[in-house]
Design a protein around this nucleic acid. Structure first.
Lengths: 223, 223
DNA sequence: CAACAATGTAGCCACCGACAACAAAGTCGT
DNA sequence: ACGACTTTGTTGTCGGTGGCTACATTGTTG
């Protein structure tokens, strides 16, 4: 407390004003009410603009005009906030993959594959830091919730592969390796673009090439 | 200045013993002599065991029995240490790719490709955090030295592709997209394993599948 | 209306990276 | 050999951060 009395001449005439903190949002009624949501939104913004390493709980608290310890009520530590971000990230990814599938004819496997890959890479490049978080957070021991949130997105890809088998675009049998290789390729393309190893304008070309080569490379052997 | 005159009391009776610091390595002669190298080695160890985010300059200094500001003489800030690590990482990668190529017959393109991919993925999984550093550091504006260090490794892959064209395993023309897709696949496989999305025992299967599918998918069109 | 839970605040601690001022050792010209 | 200069290491400090505890305010519920 640098100025215990000089501040505002104690303002004995302001009982209606909840003295509270000198937050930039002066009218806030002590309890923020939506702190958790607000934190996640602000964090996602910072994540996109500054990256995960720059994300500071105290800075978030300042942005929201709340004390530095307030976030702790909703996220016991920094990592759990990051986990929450990863989880919502997986939800968003699942939704976007679904939406992409809906734009392709239901029985056109190559088109559906292309749409899925494009949607994934688009998501991955628009939210690079988030994707990184989603992937690196997962392997942390004890991140069961994050892992669970990832399941639907994977199921979606798996179902698509099953469709490919049913339409004979893909061979019968265990295609787990093939599917994983395709997934790895998507992930890798995103990494290349996010790391500025290739020009972003190549995104379209790369996804097309990847899908085309995958369809040719994984197709059932004619011989 | 806590003690302007008590400091030295010229210590006329201890010329042989270099008072120096009470470091845990008592015999160290004030100047470490190999601090830069030692820092890099220790940092690489911590990087492998703890990850980049856990790497602390002060902790490194403590490990080496040196004051907390000593590292600054060799690395102006934390990032420049990370850059140095990334650079040596690229050197190591280049060497290992070279070694892998040497184990395959000079004119067996598929074998050489397989060996290269395997070597890359092996490197990437043994030094996950380092690989991440090498990739994420690169896009940082102004990291010209890191980018330069990456060139030889890429040249090596490029040369291999040219060989593939000369042996007709790959079609003539611009194969940059194909090569990038393969590179993305390697990178992605590493990511999948490092993030524990797939079991490490699948590494061999995945690289084989990736190479096989690539050779079939990128092969010159017969029609 | 009185416990109680939920939510926010204030203050502290240890750690970190960056910086500046100082000290010791090596180097090099004379 | 000796003194100036450079290199390398040390100490001290500052602001920032995450995590913790104690406390204050508000909402809820019996």
């Amino acid at each position: 407390m640098p100025d215990p009395e000089l501040s505002t001449t104690p303002t004995p005439t302001t009982p209606p004003a909840p003295i509270s903190p000198p937050a930039d949002t002066p009218g806030r009624p002590y309890h923020h009410g939506q702190l958790r949501t607000a934190l996640l939104e602000a964090a996602e913004r910072t994540l996109r603009t500054q990256g995960a390493s720059e994300l500071s709980l105290r800075e978030l608290a300042r942005e929201l005009g709340v004390s530095h310890a307030a976030p702790r009520r909703h996220f016991p530590d920094r990592q759990s906030l990051l986990d929450a971000l990863a989880i919502t990230g997986f939800h968003r990814l699942t939704i976007q993959l679904n939406a992409a599938l809906a734009t392709a004819p239901p029985d056109d496997f190559p088109a559906r594959l292309k749409a899925t890959v494009a949607a994934y890479v688009t998501f991955a490049t628009q939210d690079a830091a988030l994707l990184d978080l989603m992937f690196t957070t997962k392997h942390r021991p004890g991140a069961t919730e994050v892992a669970a949130a990832a399941v639907p997105a994977f199921t979606q890809l798996q179902d698509l592969m099953l469709q490919g088998q049913s339409t004979a675009h893909l061979p019968a049998g265990n295609l787990e390796p093939s599917a994983l290789v395709l997934f790895a390729t998507m992930q890798g393309i995103a990494t290349l673009i996010n790391g500025a190893w290739v020009d972003p304008t190549l995104l379209e070309t790369l996804t097309t090439t990847a899908v085309t080569q995958f369809l040719r490379g994984a197709a059932p052997h004619p011989a």
